[in-house]
Design a protein around this nucleic acid. Sequence first.
DNA 1: GCCAAATTCAAACGAGGGTTTGAAAAAAGG
DNA 2: CCTTTTTTCAAACCCTCGTTTGAATTTGGC
Lengths: 206, 206
Amino acid sequence: MTRPSDITRDRIMRAAERLFAERGYDHTSIRAIVAKARVNQAAINYHFDGKDGLYREVLRSAFRALTEGQTSHAAEIKALSRERALAEFVRYQLRGLLQRDELTRPIRIFNWETVRPTAVFRELLSQEVAPFMGLATDIISRFMPAADQRTLTLAAIWLVGQCGVFVRNRERLAGPPMSLQLDEAAIEQLAELVSGWAIAGLGSHA
Amino acid sequence: MTRPSDITRDRIMRAAERLFAERGYDHTSIRAIVAKARVNQAAINYHFDGKDGLYREVLRSAFRALTEGQTSHAAEIKALSRERALAEFVRYQLRGLLQRDELTRPIRIFNWETVRPTAVFRELLSQEVAPFMGLATDIISRFMPAADQRTLTLAAIWLVGQCGVFVRNRERLAGPPMSLQLDEAAIEQLAELVSGWAIAGLGSHA
DNA sequence: GCCAAATTCAAACGAGGGTTTGAAAAAAGG
DNA sequence: CCTTTTTTCAAACCCTCGTTTGAATTTGGC
């Protein structure tokens, strides 16, 4: 693991993860990556077989970081009452609003993919989207036990959407003209508001 | 208006609007635009002072198309009961799911801007975002008359978010593994579901 | 019909992108 | 230690991009 070549590989991964999260795939040049990682330009092709290969690795790593956290909490969430489970889910989604970069970087990378999915991403998505949406659908189904599959799916998307809009527009909401304060306490309040609205909305169908 | 030079200008605008909507700013080359418009490459610099200038014009046109439709309906929406107003708002937002390109093209252009706002867009946004969010906030305030400004703003974003997630992911939702049917009838159903959930959610605070 | 202005055109420019190359350096194995 | 393999390196290659150029053509007012 500490072989010299692995050190180079690791430096590239760290730099690439930061830059891809910050600027997205297109606006990140391999020259910028190697400058930040302080390695030779050809090293990316040597270790990752090109920019696409590097991005694939970064995406995989981001997927792991996200779903790992998600599934580890999934079990305890399922043990809660449906209301508290949904509230916890919302809070978990909204954690992307925090500036703690270790957590938000994977989220930001996926945000780029929301609008322009790269080919690399589509490939990964088909394998990994199931557990990602599965938890949401599971929670929803406890509010709408009689609903058909289509409605459950739509409701799950609906739930994810009302959280994601805040995460995706974080920077814009923080600035004028909205100027929303988004510290830890404010996010907690927001999570309560959103989960309250969502629970009441779904409750009408119970 | 039918001067020869205006014809060239118009052909460029049409082609650019289509391509920007389809691929976004970065992935649309002026060579692709002039090929589709069947004009000379230098014409873009002559008529629009470069790619940025052309994009600015396309954005302006898209803004006009969207807010014009929005504000024209805003008046009649405000005359409705709060529940019907919200339902109408949701239906209006979800019209982006339709494949009728005259309507969806401006929406798609703005979708690109959601994740990576261009400098051109930021400039326009500061002038025009107010009426865009104003209607949402107005409807919301009828459900939460006692709420503070911050809560109203958050609720407006929340409302827009739960509509936008469907529009933004339309193509992905239509394909596997979701494979959601999204014809006119299905969208109508979806609008009813979403507005029903939203109304019930906000109703809890009334 | 003429002339000045506006418009079109083909070609080239320069910057920036990802990738390739082939030799030099370092690491690993016997 | 010597050999073989792995890894690094600077340089160049080739492509696409937005823009510029300067001449040719068309347009519009007199």
